[in-house]
Amino acid sequence: MSATGMSPFLGGSASRELPGRAPDDAQVPSPERDRGIVASVLDAAGNARGSGYNFAYLDEGTKRMIRRAILKAIAVPGYQVPFASREMPMPYGWGTGGVQVTAAILGQSDVLKVIDQGADDTTNAVSIRRFFAKTSGVATTTRTTEATVIQTRHRIPETPLTEGQILVYQVPIPEPLRFLEPRETETRQLHALAEYGAMHVKLYEDISRHGHIATTYAYPVEVAGRYVMDPSPTPKFDNPKMDDCPALQLFGAGRERRIYAVPPYTRVRSLDFEDHPFRVQEFTQPCALCGARGHYLDEVVTDDSGGRMFICSDTDICETRVAEAAR
């Protein structure tokens, strides 16, 4: 019996109808759909047809301000650049920082992918992708390999990123020291002095209590040997992907009004100790759908008597592997 057969609510064609995996953008003509790309809907002037807003929603003055912040962020990797975050038409905490960064960098020839929890079809990912399809008309995709800009919440795709790509993270609390020191005036000084002892103490307290570091996500990293940075609440499983990554990584925190960046091919080191080196989560079983090992897995509760299955959180790579296996 296949692993998918264990779930009473998955039905026959389980791999396509998992919760959170309903294909959206379903009405798109087939050739583009097959490539995962949704055709651009720009008018002759390059503005999104009928949206009534500027290209990618933001006015040009706001884009300039954000663009300047992005350039500074790239020049000082890991440093949080203050920016005058605007009120967006979605709530703070729902990706306004990432949305503003994406809006500021996006051009007509970009292909946009949006994921939340690794999946293209979680409601907030759908909502943000729709927002950009409507206001910018750029092509969208679910395929990691086809995207030039990927906006993400909580995951880095399993498919290795390439030089032509930009990964935009949505960040809730950009300050890695915030829960050690709530005051902005204090944390700013700590960064200025590169005084990160408190962070090491905190991690070491974990070790003395539990025998290992008990931080599982938003695991702090040191960027290019200088700033300690919050990688956003990605599981620490994804931290190694940030190191020496060929893609540009941009981070936007709307409510907290900060932008920061990791340029391509930059050293990103997860904080650790010689006797307690950094280690990522390991899953004992493969993905129940595509059989992959070494991917981050979501645990899906299949019934009310302890039934569980583990499936890839990255829906694109999972679907690609399932499709390849069926061929």
Partner: peptide
């Protein structure tokens, strides 16, 4: 708006991080 956004964002999916905590 900042307060309600951040409080209410807790209803967005967090299952990736929750998985990490479950494992721990």
């Amino acid at each position: 708006l900042q307060a309600t956004g951040f409080v209410e964002h807790l209803k967005l999916p967090h299952y990736v991080d929750f998985q990490a905590e479950l494992e721990l």
